[in-house]
């Protein structure tokens, strides 16, 4: 008997508060605060007093939690790794777009 899953959320559509983001990602509120203040995790609108976070922030926060646990990273090393991963993501997205535009390449 299969259980039908109905309560599904597109990460892309769902907004989280700072405490929800910490709980879901498993980061401590202090580390999350540091990631936000250093710009590694960005709220949707940084000007509001109670910031809300989207899919990109959750993705970064989950990566940060995994990197911290698995590599025993301190905060500066974590920030460096997240920054480099961000750059790789941006370059890969650009590469995918360029490849899609080139005829005959898959």
């Amino acid at each position: 008997m299969r259980v039908e899953l109905t309560e599904m959320l597109w990460l892309e559509e769902h907004e989280l508060s700072s405490s929800e983001l910490a709980a879901i990602s498993g980061l401590t509120p202090e580390l999350l605060e540091e990631l936000v203040s250093s710009g590694a995790v960005s709220p949707i609108d940084p000007s509001v007093p109670e910031p809300r976070f989207g899919a990109a922030a959750l993705r970064t926060a989950l990566t940060a939690r995994r990197l911290c646990t698995d590599f025993e990273l301190d905060t500066p090393a974590l920030l460096l790794a997240l920054g480099l991963l961000d750059r790789i993501d941006a370059l890969e997205a650009r590469l995918r777009l360029l490849r899609a535009k080139l005829p005959g390449l898959r």
Partner: peptide, 23 residues
């Protein structure tokens, strides 16, 4: 063992993620 059936709504694309809270 858990057997789930999930409906992937139209509009899914590469790199997107669905979160199923509490599952």
């Amino acid at each position: 063992p858990h057997a789930f059936k999930a409906r992937i709504p139209k509009g899914a694309t590469d790199g997107q993620r669905l979160r199923l809270p509490g599952k």
